[in-house]
Every structure is written in structure tokens, then in C-alpha cells.
Design a protein around this nucleic acid. Structure first.
Lengths: 125, 125
DNA sequence: ATTTAATATGCGCCGGCAGGAATATGCCTC
DNA sequence: GAGGCATATTCCTGCCGGCGCATATTAAAT
């Protein structure tokens, strides 16, 4: 996996938002939909792109697909993810995403949507 | 200047190599040519792209154009450049570029090509 | 002024990616 | 096995970027 490919993944706004959210832990597609407020097709395609390039892993859990950052990461990937996390602190739209994600997580806690529980426990939260 | 634009600049191999070289100090186009071993048009266009996106500044010096990283950098840019420098340590083709650059710099020292002296002094080396 | 060296720009071609609409797949429930 | 939900894939279109070729610009030298 080339360094250029990492940047290929980062150079689209939607993918950037996705990866940034994944820094907070695994997520299923429906989470992405409600946080990013983008059409399902769009999100699904970008997730597919990220997977194809090795920046994301996925696992089926019943009806839902849970996406996460790869367990094993090259040094370059780790470095760049850390960098993204840094940059995310000041970038408006990324902050907004984090806020919406946090809200969703607290609102239903141990409650309604199964996929939320799933990925919350997967997170360890 | 958006974070995405930074990644837009980094996601091409030639541009990545250019920026990586600029981490070592200002350079003129002829340097890029001999280090990168790519056609002049290609290099020139990518430099133009980088300039248009604010990742590079240029200054004329006689016949030569000297390119450098911007004097004023956003926090995001600084972070990403540092990250690139990190990643450059292990990436083969970037190491090779650095080696070729170092060779050129020592070979003619204070010697023949004016542009070499120019950018060398601009570097402070 | 003409020539030469260094660099930039315009043009045309091609490939690939983003986006949306529609459709397909996989899994669960009843 | 039918229907319904979550997600993926296909097909299409438009656009932008990368590349090479040829040519233009700018400055220095003679």
C-alpha cells in the first residue's frame, strides 16, 4: 500500500469525514448516514473505495455492516491518521461531525437501535 | 485553503516528491529535473498546480525560478508537512530522491551551475 | 537584435472518479 | 417463502486531472 494511496483516500471530503469519524471507533453505515447527512449510495461507495485501498476493514453483523480502521497499520498510515486527528481539532466540519456523533451516542445509550449498541460495545464504550 | 486541498496536492506521486524535496529547502526547476528525472513540462505543471493551491511559493532569480514552501503556513499545513517528513524516512522513492539531491549539492559546491549556488545560499547551506 | 537557456502555457486525448437513479444482494422476521 | 430493512452494485453522465507535444514567455549573452 503506497503512501500516495493514503493521500488518494484523504483527498475527498466525504472520505476525509468518514476516516475522521472512524478515529472515534467502529461505525456502521447507518451512523455515517445520520452524521454525515449524505445519501446512502455516496457513503457506501466511498466506504467501498476505502476498503479497496486498505484504509478500512468491514465486518458483517446481522443486517449491518460495521466499518473500522484496520487493526494492523503501517507506520505511514498511523502517522497520517494521527495527523488527521490533529487537523480535525480545528477543522470546522470535522468538529461538527464529531459533535453529531457524540450526540447520537449519548441519546440512545444501551437503548433502541441494535447497530448503535453493537458498535458502541465494539468501541469499548 | 481547505484541508482537502492539501491532500489534493499530496495525492499525486510527482507532487509528493516535489514537496518532499522542498522540505530540504528551496529549489529551482532544473534541480527538480535532475533529481526527479521527469520531463520538464510535467514538473512545471505540477509546480503550477501546487502554487495555485498555495502549497508553494516562487521567486524569479534571473533565468531561474526558485520554489519554496510557503513562509506562512497554516497549522494544518505544518502538521501535514511534518507528517510527510516522517513518512519520507521509510518510503523508498523519497529516500532515493533525497540521496540524489544530496549528491548534486555536494558535487558542485560553490562551483558551476549558478542556480545551484543560488538556491544553496537561499537554503543557508 | 538575434540567439540561447530556463521555464511556462495552450491544446487535445484519455482514464478515472464523483454523483445520482435504479436495481441487486444479503439477512432477518413472520 | 414473502416482505422488509440495511447495504452494495450497476449504469450512466459530467468533469477534472495527468500526460505529451508543440509553442510561448522571460531573461541573459553575444
Amino acid at each position: 500500500m503506497d503512501l500516495v494511496q493514503i493521500y488518494d483516500c484523504l483527498c475527498d471530503r466525504t472520505r476525509l469525514r468518514i476516516l475522521h469519524l472512524l478515529l472515534e471507533g467502529p461505525l456502521c453505515v447507518c451512523h455515517f448516514q445520520s452524521v454525515l447527512r449524505e445519501p446512502q449510495v455516496k457513503i457506501s461507495k466511498h466506504l467501498s473505495y476505502l476498503k479497496r485501498h486498505g484504509l478500512v476493514e468491514s465486518e458483517r453483523s446481522g443486517n449491518w455492516m460495521i466499518y473500522r480502521l484496520p487493526a494492523q497499520r503501517t507506520a505511514q498510515l498511523s502517522t497520517n491518521l494521527a495527523c488527521l486527528q490533529d487537523c480535525g481539532r480545528e477543522e470546522r466540519f470535522l468538529r461538527a461531525d464529531r459533535a453529531r456523533l457524540a450526540k447520537i451516542r449519548t441519546e440512545f445509550h444501551g437503548a433502541i437501535p441494535a447497530c448503535v449498541r453493537k458498535s458502541a460495545t465494539a468501541l469499548g464504550a
